[in-house]
Design a protein around this nucleic acid. Structure first.
Lengths: 186, 186
DNA sequence: GCGTATATATATCAGAATGATATATATAAT
DNA sequence: ATTATATATATCATTCTGATATATATACGC
Protein backbone atom coordinates (compact mmCIF):
# COMPACT_ATOMS: atom_id res chain seq x y z
CA UNK A 1 0.00 0.00 0.00
CA UNK A 2 1.31 3.43 -0.90
CA UNK A 3 2.68 5.33 2.07
CA UNK A 4 0.47 8.31 1.20
CA UNK A 5 -2.72 6.23 1.26
CA UNK A 6 -1.69 4.65 4.52
CA UNK A 7 -0.90 7.96 6.26
CA UNK A 8 -4.14 9.47 4.96
CA UNK A 9 -6.03 6.41 6.17
CA UNK A 10 -4.65 6.77 9.69
CA UNK A 11 -5.35 10.50 9.68
CA UNK A 12 -8.94 9.74 8.60
CA UNK A 13 -9.41 8.25 12.08
CA UNK A 14 -8.59 11.65 13.60
CA UNK A 15 -5.93 14.37 13.56
CA UNK A 16 -2.50 13.35 14.83
CA UNK A 17 1.23 14.00 14.58
CA UNK A 18 3.91 12.01 12.79
CA UNK A 19 5.12 10.74 16.12
CA UNK A 20 1.65 9.46 16.96
CA UNK A 21 1.36 7.74 13.56
CA UNK A 22 4.61 5.95 14.35
CA UNK A 23 3.15 4.89 17.70
CA UNK A 24 0.28 3.20 15.86
CA UNK A 25 2.76 1.24 13.77
CA UNK A 26 4.60 0.16 16.90
CA UNK A 27 1.40 -0.62 18.78
CA UNK A 28 -1.76 -2.12 17.28
CA UNK A 29 -0.45 -2.25 13.70
CA UNK A 30 2.96 -3.72 14.50
CA UNK A 31 1.95 -7.21 13.37
CA UNK A 32 0.64 -6.09 9.99
CA UNK A 33 2.68 -3.19 8.74
CA UNK A 34 5.27 -0.59 9.62
CA UNK A 35 6.70 2.67 8.32
CA UNK A 36 9.83 4.36 9.65
CA UNK A 37 10.20 8.00 10.70
CA UNK A 38 12.30 8.47 7.59
CA UNK A 39 9.20 7.68 5.53
CA UNK A 40 6.47 9.20 7.71
CA UNK A 41 7.84 12.73 8.10
CA UNK A 42 8.67 13.38 4.43
CA UNK A 43 5.33 11.86 3.41
CA UNK A 44 3.42 14.19 5.73
CA UNK A 45 5.37 17.18 4.37
CA UNK A 46 4.52 16.21 0.80
CA UNK A 47 0.86 15.59 1.64
CA UNK A 48 0.73 19.04 3.24
CA UNK A 49 2.39 20.73 0.25
CA UNK A 50 -0.28 19.20 -2.01
CA UNK A 51 -3.13 20.17 0.36
CA UNK A 52 -4.16 16.60 1.16
CA UNK A 53 -3.65 17.45 4.85
CA UNK A 54 -3.56 20.66 6.86
CA UNK A 55 -1.20 21.26 9.75
CA UNK A 56 -1.49 23.08 13.08
CA UNK A 57 1.68 23.73 15.02
CA UNK A 58 1.34 23.40 18.81
CA UNK A 59 4.31 24.98 20.52
CA UNK A 60 5.24 23.14 23.73
CA UNK A 61 7.65 25.35 25.66
CA UNK A 62 11.03 23.86 24.67
CA UNK A 63 10.18 20.53 23.00
CA UNK A 64 10.00 20.68 19.21
CA UNK A 65 6.63 21.94 18.05
CA UNK A 66 4.06 19.20 17.78
CA UNK A 67 2.71 19.31 14.24
CA UNK A 68 -0.82 17.97 14.23
CA UNK A 69 -2.08 16.99 10.79
CA UNK A 70 -5.73 16.94 9.74
CA UNK A 71 -6.94 15.26 6.57
CA UNK A 72 -8.71 17.56 4.10
CA UNK A 73 -11.65 16.85 1.77
CA UNK A 74 -9.12 16.55 -1.06
CA UNK A 75 -7.16 14.06 1.06
CA UNK A 76 -10.24 11.96 1.85
CA UNK A 77 -11.02 11.79 -1.86
CA UNK A 78 -7.49 10.72 -2.78
CA UNK A 79 -7.46 8.06 -0.07
CA UNK A 80 -10.79 6.58 -1.15
CA UNK A 81 -9.73 6.63 -4.82
CA UNK A 82 -6.45 4.89 -4.03
CA UNK A 83 -8.11 2.26 -1.83
CA UNK A 84 -10.70 1.44 -4.48
CA UNK A 85 -8.18 1.45 -7.31
CA UNK A 86 -5.73 -0.87 -5.55
CA UNK A 87 -8.15 -3.07 -3.60
CA UNK A 88 -7.83 -6.01 -5.97
CA UNK A 89 -4.04 -6.02 -5.81
CA UNK A 90 -4.12 -6.56 -2.03
CA UNK A 91 -6.09 -9.79 -2.26
CA UNK A 92 -2.95 -11.85 -2.74
CA UNK A 93 -0.89 -10.29 0.05
CA UNK A 94 -0.40 -11.06 3.71
CA UNK A 95 -0.62 -14.38 5.46
CA UNK A 96 -0.11 -16.23 3.21
CA UNK A 97 0.47 -13.77 0.45
CA UNK A 98 3.60 -12.21 -0.94
CA UNK A 99 4.80 -9.86 1.72
CA UNK A 100 5.80 -12.06 4.64
CA UNK A 101 9.42 -12.26 5.67
CA UNK A 102 9.36 -14.95 8.31
CA UNK A 103 12.85 -15.40 9.62
CA UNK A 104 11.47 -17.94 12.07
CA UNK A 105 10.38 -20.21 9.22
CA UNK A 106 13.82 -19.89 7.64
CA UNK A 107 15.35 -20.91 10.95
CA UNK A 108 13.11 -24.00 10.99
CA UNK A 109 14.14 -24.74 7.41
CA UNK A 110 17.79 -24.84 8.46
CA UNK A 111 17.13 -26.39 11.88
CA UNK A 112 19.15 -29.48 11.00
CA UNK A 113 22.29 -27.37 11.38
CA UNK A 114 21.33 -26.36 14.91
CA UNK A 115 21.83 -28.60 17.98
CA UNK A 116 18.70 -30.23 19.42
CA UNK A 117 19.07 -28.44 22.76
CA UNK A 118 19.30 -25.05 21.09
CA UNK A 119 16.22 -25.75 18.95
CA UNK A 120 14.40 -26.85 22.07
CA UNK A 121 15.11 -23.55 23.77
CA UNK A 122 14.17 -21.63 20.65
CA UNK A 123 10.84 -23.47 20.32
CA UNK A 124 10.06 -22.99 24.01
CA UNK A 125 10.70 -19.25 23.73
CA UNK A 126 8.66 -19.11 20.55
CA UNK A 127 5.71 -20.68 22.37
CA UNK A 128 6.04 -18.18 25.22
CA UNK A 129 6.23 -15.34 22.72
CA UNK A 130 3.14 -16.50 20.84
CA UNK A 131 1.21 -16.90 24.11
CA UNK A 132 2.11 -13.31 24.92
CA UNK A 133 0.97 -12.17 21.47
CA UNK A 134 -2.27 -14.06 21.94
CA UNK A 135 -2.96 -12.29 25.24
CA UNK A 136 -2.19 -8.98 23.54
CA UNK A 137 -4.77 -9.63 20.82
CA UNK A 138 -7.36 -10.81 23.31
CA UNK A 139 -6.80 -7.95 25.76
CA UNK A 140 -9.89 -5.82 25.83
CA UNK A 141 -9.12 -3.23 28.49
CA UNK A 142 -8.26 0.45 28.12
CA UNK A 143 -5.52 1.65 25.76
CA UNK A 144 -3.53 4.94 25.68
CA UNK A 145 -5.58 7.83 24.32
CA UNK A 146 -3.83 8.20 20.97
CA UNK A 147 -4.46 4.52 20.19
CA UNK A 148 -8.14 4.66 21.09
CA UNK A 149 -9.30 5.63 17.61
CA UNK A 150 -7.85 2.55 15.96
CA UNK A 151 -9.00 0.21 18.73
CA UNK A 152 -12.58 1.43 18.26
CA UNK A 153 -12.67 0.66 14.53
CA UNK A 154 -15.21 -2.09 13.88
CA UNK A 155 -12.85 -3.77 11.41
CA UNK A 156 -10.22 -4.03 14.15
CA UNK A 157 -12.31 -6.51 16.16
CA UNK A 158 -12.53 -8.68 13.03
CA UNK A 159 -8.76 -8.49 12.55
CA UNK A 160 -7.99 -9.15 16.22
CA UNK A 161 -10.29 -12.17 16.22
CA UNK A 162 -8.61 -13.53 13.10
CA UNK A 163 -5.13 -12.97 14.52
CA UNK A 164 -6.11 -14.72 17.77
CA UNK A 165 -7.52 -17.71 15.90
CA UNK A 166 -4.35 -17.98 13.78
CA UNK A 167 -2.02 -17.80 16.76
CA UNK A 168 -4.03 -20.43 18.65
CA UNK A 169 -3.81 -22.76 15.66
CA UNK A 170 -0.08 -22.13 15.39
CA UNK A 171 0.46 -22.86 19.08
CA UNK A 172 -1.51 -26.11 18.97
CA UNK A 173 0.33 -27.24 15.86
CA UNK A 174 3.71 -26.48 17.40
CA UNK A 175 2.96 -28.39 20.60
CA UNK A 176 1.78 -31.44 18.66
CA UNK A 177 4.42 -31.51 15.93
CA UNK A 178 7.63 -30.04 17.29
CA UNK A 179 9.08 -33.53 17.68
CA UNK A 180 9.27 -33.68 13.87
CA UNK A 181 12.10 -31.12 13.98
CA UNK A 182 14.29 -33.28 16.21
CA UNK A 183 17.33 -34.88 14.66
CA UNK A 184 17.76 -38.58 15.41
CA UNK A 185 21.51 -38.31 16.07
CA UNK A 186 23.18 -35.13 17.17
CA UNK B 1 18.33 -13.19 8.18
CA UNK B 2 21.48 -12.02 6.48
CA UNK B 3 21.43 -12.55 2.72
CA UNK B 4 24.77 -14.37 2.94
CA UNK B 5 23.48 -16.90 5.50
CA UNK B 6 20.37 -17.45 3.45
CA UNK B 7 22.20 -18.04 0.15
CA UNK B 8 24.66 -20.36 1.90
CA UNK B 9 21.76 -22.22 3.49
CA UNK B 10 20.12 -22.83 0.13
CA UNK B 11 23.44 -23.88 -1.40
CA UNK B 12 23.90 -26.33 1.50
CA UNK B 13 21.00 -28.29 -0.01
CA UNK B 14 23.02 -28.76 -3.20
CA UNK B 15 24.94 -26.77 -5.84
CA UNK B 16 22.89 -24.35 -7.91
CA UNK B 17 22.96 -21.10 -9.86
CA UNK B 18 21.68 -17.66 -8.88
CA UNK B 19 18.75 -18.13 -11.22
CA UNK B 20 17.82 -21.37 -9.47
CA UNK B 21 18.06 -19.71 -6.05
CA UNK B 22 15.62 -17.11 -7.27
CA UNK B 23 13.30 -19.91 -8.43
CA UNK B 24 13.24 -21.25 -4.88
CA UNK B 25 12.16 -17.85 -3.61
CA UNK B 26 9.41 -17.71 -6.19
CA UNK B 27 8.36 -21.30 -5.60
CA UNK B 28 8.32 -23.07 -2.24
CA UNK B 29 9.74 -20.14 -0.24
CA UNK B 30 7.52 -17.44 -1.73
CA UNK B 31 5.26 -17.32 1.32
CA UNK B 32 8.08 -16.90 3.80
CA UNK B 33 10.85 -14.88 2.24
CA UNK B 34 12.23 -13.41 -0.95
CA UNK B 35 15.41 -11.90 -2.36
CA UNK B 36 15.69 -10.07 -5.67
CA UNK B 37 18.22 -10.71 -8.44
CA UNK B 38 19.80 -7.42 -7.47
CA UNK B 39 20.63 -8.96 -4.09
CA UNK B 40 21.33 -12.57 -5.09
CA UNK B 41 23.93 -12.01 -7.81
CA UNK B 42 26.17 -9.54 -5.92
CA UNK B 43 25.91 -11.72 -2.78
CA UNK B 44 27.07 -14.79 -4.70
CA UNK B 45 29.98 -12.82 -6.18
CA UNK B 46 31.05 -11.65 -2.72
CA UNK B 47 30.71 -15.13 -1.24
CA UNK B 48 32.89 -16.47 -4.05
CA UNK B 49 35.53 -13.76 -3.57
CA UNK B 50 35.77 -14.74 0.10
CA UNK B 51 35.91 -18.49 -0.69
CA UNK B 52 32.62 -19.35 1.02
CA UNK B 53 31.46 -20.84 -2.27
CA UNK B 54 33.21 -22.15 -5.38
CA UNK B 55 31.92 -21.65 -8.90
CA UNK B 56 31.89 -23.78 -12.05
CA UNK B 57 30.97 -22.11 -15.28
CA UNK B 58 28.87 -24.23 -17.68
CA UNK B 59 28.88 -22.72 -21.14
CA UNK B 60 25.57 -23.25 -22.96
CA UNK B 61 26.03 -22.40 -26.66
CA UNK B 62 24.65 -18.85 -26.81
CA UNK B 63 22.83 -18.37 -23.51
CA UNK B 64 24.89 -16.67 -20.79
CA UNK B 65 27.11 -19.14 -18.98
CA UNK B 66 25.35 -20.89 -16.16
CA UNK B 67 27.40 -20.30 -13.01
CA UNK B 68 26.84 -23.17 -10.61
CA UNK B 69 27.91 -22.39 -7.06
CA UNK B 70 28.97 -25.00 -4.51
CA UNK B 71 29.30 -24.27 -0.80
CA UNK B 72 32.78 -24.83 0.66
CA UNK B 73 33.76 -26.12 4.11
CA UNK B 74 34.49 -22.49 5.06
CA UNK B 75 31.00 -21.56 3.85
CA UNK B 76 29.31 -24.34 5.84
CA UNK B 77 31.12 -23.14 8.96
CA UNK B 78 30.08 -19.53 8.44
CA UNK B 79 26.46 -20.52 7.83
CA UNK B 80 26.28 -22.65 10.98
CA UNK B 81 27.94 -19.92 13.04
CA UNK B 82 25.52 -17.30 11.76
CA UNK B 83 22.47 -19.50 12.31
CA UNK B 84 23.48 -20.28 15.87
CA UNK B 85 24.47 -16.71 16.66
CA UNK B 86 21.22 -15.22 15.38
CA UNK B 87 18.76 -17.99 16.28
CA UNK B 88 17.36 -16.18 19.31
CA UNK B 89 16.67 -13.02 17.33
CA UNK B 90 14.35 -14.90 14.94
CA UNK B 91 12.02 -16.08 17.69
CA UNK B 92 10.01 -12.88 17.53
CA UNK B 93 9.65 -12.70 13.76
CA UNK B 94 7.13 -14.00 11.28
CA UNK B 95 3.47 -14.63 11.79
CA UNK B 96 2.89 -12.84 14.10
CA UNK B 97 6.28 -11.30 14.60
CA UNK B 98 7.74 -8.11 13.24
CA UNK B 99 8.25 -8.73 9.55
CA UNK B 100 4.78 -9.06 8.10
CA UNK B 101 3.50 -6.46 5.68
CA UNK B 102 -0.08 -7.51 5.18
CA UNK B 103 -1.68 -5.13 2.76
CA UNK B 104 -4.84 -7.22 2.97
CA UNK B 105 -5.21 -6.46 6.68
CA UNK B 106 -4.73 -2.75 5.95
CA UNK B 107 -7.47 -2.98 3.34
CA UNK B 108 -9.77 -4.55 5.96
CA UNK B 109 -8.82 -1.77 8.39
CA UNK B 110 -10.02 0.83 5.88
CA UNK B 111 -12.92 -1.25 4.54
CA UNK B 112 -15.46 1.30 5.73
CA UNK B 113 -14.36 3.55 2.87
CA UNK B 114 -15.06 0.83 0.31
CA UNK B 115 -18.57 -0.01 -0.99
CA UNK B 116 -20.14 -3.23 0.34
CA UNK B 117 -20.32 -4.80 -3.13
CA UNK B 118 -16.64 -4.18 -3.75
CA UNK B 119 -15.68 -5.64 -0.38
CA UNK B 120 -17.86 -8.62 -1.15
CA UNK B 121 -15.99 -9.29 -4.37
CA UNK B 122 -12.64 -8.77 -2.65
CA UNK B 123 -13.49 -11.22 0.15
CA UNK B 124 -14.76 -13.80 -2.34
CA UNK B 125 -11.54 -13.58 -4.32
CA UNK B 126 -9.53 -13.75 -1.12
CA UNK B 127 -11.29 -16.98 -0.18
CA UNK B 128 -10.58 -18.43 -3.64
CA UNK B 129 -6.96 -17.38 -3.37
CA UNK B 130 -6.53 -18.94 0.08
CA UNK B 131 -8.17 -22.19 -1.11
CA UNK B 132 -5.64 -22.25 -3.93
CA UNK B 133 -2.78 -21.65 -1.48
CA UNK B 134 -4.10 -24.44 0.72
CA UNK B 135 -4.09 -26.88 -2.18
CA UNK B 136 -0.55 -25.79 -3.01
CA UNK B 137 0.65 -26.55 0.51
CA UNK B 138 -1.14 -29.89 0.60
CA UNK B 139 0.02 -30.98 -2.86
CA UNK B 140 2.32 -33.92 -2.45
CA UNK B 141 3.10 -34.90 -6.04
CA UNK B 142 6.27 -34.42 -8.07
CA UNK B 143 8.00 -31.01 -8.35
CA UNK B 144 10.52 -29.68 -10.92
CA UNK B 145 14.01 -31.09 -10.40
CA UNK B 146 15.67 -27.95 -9.05
CA UNK B 147 13.01 -27.67 -6.33
CA UNK B 148 13.30 -31.27 -5.23
CA UNK B 149 16.05 -30.66 -2.68
CA UNK B 150 13.97 -28.23 -0.66
CA UNK B 151 10.81 -30.31 -0.88
CA UNK B 152 12.67 -33.29 0.59
CA UNK B 153 13.86 -31.42 3.67
CA UNK B 154 12.24 -32.93 6.77
CA UNK B 155 11.61 -29.47 8.22
CA UNK B 156 9.61 -28.57 5.13
CA UNK B 157 6.84 -31.03 5.96
CA UNK B 158 6.56 -29.40 9.39
CA UNK B 159 6.34 -25.97 7.78
CA UNK B 160 3.83 -27.06 5.13
CA UNK B 161 1.63 -28.65 7.77
CA UNK B 162 1.72 -25.48 9.85
CA UNK B 163 0.93 -23.29 6.86
CA UNK B 164 -2.00 -25.53 5.91
CA UNK B 165 -3.41 -25.42 9.43
CA UNK B 166 -3.11 -21.62 9.53
CA UNK B 167 -4.80 -21.15 6.17
CA UNK B 168 -7.65 -23.48 7.13
CA UNK B 169 -8.23 -21.51 10.32
CA UNK B 170 -8.16 -18.26 8.36
CA UNK B 171 -10.68 -19.57 5.83
CA UNK B 172 -13.09 -20.79 8.50
CA UNK B 173 -12.84 -17.51 10.39
CA UNK B 174 -13.49 -15.50 7.24
CA UNK B 175 -16.58 -17.51 6.30
CA UNK B 176 -18.04 -17.17 9.79
CA UNK B 177 -17.18 -13.53 10.47
CA UNK B 178 -17.13 -11.65 7.19
CA UNK B 179 -20.54 -10.19 7.94
CA UNK B 180 -18.83 -8.08 10.63
CA UNK B 181 -17.16 -6.03 7.91
CA UNK B 182 -20.44 -5.02 6.30
CA UNK B 183 -21.54 -1.43 6.71
CA UNK B 184 -25.18 -0.97 7.78
CA UNK B 185 -25.83 1.89 5.36
CA UNK B 186 -23.85 2.40 2.21
C1' DG C 1 20.24 15.02 44.80
C1' DC C 2 22.45 12.73 40.97
C1' DG C 3 22.94 9.83 37.19
C1' DT C 4 20.51 6.82 34.02
C1' DA C 5 16.91 5.43 31.26
C1' DT C 6 12.90 6.23 28.85
C1' DA C 7 9.46 9.16 26.51
C1' DT C 8 8.25 13.09 23.55
C1' DA C 9 9.10 15.19 18.99
C1' DT C 10 11.08 16.18 14.38
C1' DA C 11 14.60 15.72 10.90
C1' DT C 12 18.22 13.79 8.01
C1' DC C 13 21.05 10.52 5.65
C1' DA C 14 24.24 6.54 4.62
C1' DG C 15 23.54 2.06 3.36
C1' DA C 16 20.70 -1.59 1.79
C1' DA C 17 17.13 -3.70 -1.01
C1' DT C 18 13.79 -3.71 -4.55
C1' DG C 19 11.77 -3.48 -9.08
C1' DA C 20 12.71 -2.38 -13.52
C1' DT C 21 15.42 -2.63 -17.33
C1' DA C 22 19.10 -4.37 -20.52
C1' DT C 23 21.02 -8.16 -23.09
C1' DA C 24 20.66 -12.52 -25.64
C1' DT C 25 18.57 -16.81 -27.03
C1' DA C 26 15.28 -20.84 -27.11
C1' DT C 27 10.94 -22.69 -27.13
C1' DA C 28 6.06 -23.04 -26.91
C1' DA C 29 1.71 -21.28 -28.16
C1' DT C 30 -1.59 -18.88 -31.26
C1' DA D 1 4.92 -15.43 -38.38
C1' DT D 2 4.36 -13.33 -34.09
C1' DT D 3 3.84 -13.17 -29.36
C1' DA D 4 4.73 -14.73 -24.88
C1' DT D 5 7.32 -17.17 -21.73
C1' DA D 6 11.55 -19.32 -19.96
C1' DT D 7 16.61 -19.38 -19.25
C1' DA D 8 20.48 -16.62 -17.41
C1' DT D 9 23.24 -12.77 -15.58
C1' DA D 10 23.96 -7.97 -14.58
C1' DT D 11 23.19 -3.15 -13.30
C1' DC D 12 21.07 0.89 -11.37
C1' DA D 13 17.70 4.65 -10.04
C1' DT D 14 14.52 4.97 -6.70
C1' DT D 15 12.85 3.79 -2.32
C1' DC D 16 13.01 2.47 2.48
C1' DT D 17 15.04 1.44 6.69
C1' DG D 18 17.78 1.94 10.77
C1' DA D 19 20.73 4.92 12.94
C1' DT D 20 21.94 9.18 14.44
C1' DA D 21 21.39 14.12 15.79
C1' DT D 22 19.05 17.51 18.57
C1' DA D 23 16.54 19.05 22.64
C1' DT D 24 13.75 18.51 26.77
C1' DA D 25 10.88 16.22 30.47
C1' DT D 26 9.93 12.78 33.57
C1' DA D 27 10.50 8.65 36.29
C1' DC D 28 13.45 5.48 38.89
C1' DG D 29 16.91 3.69 41.75
C1' DC D 30 20.56 4.58 45.08
Amino acid sequence: MQKETLCLGLLSLGPRSGYEIKQMFEGPLSDFYSLSFGTIYPTLNNLQADKYVSCKQHSQSKKPDKKVYTITKKGMDLMKDNLLGDASSYIRSGNFGDQIKSEFFLLLLFSKYIPNETMNTVLNERVLYLRQKLEQFKYDGPVPGNLDAIRNEKSVSFIRGLASALIETGLNYMEKNRHLLKKKIN
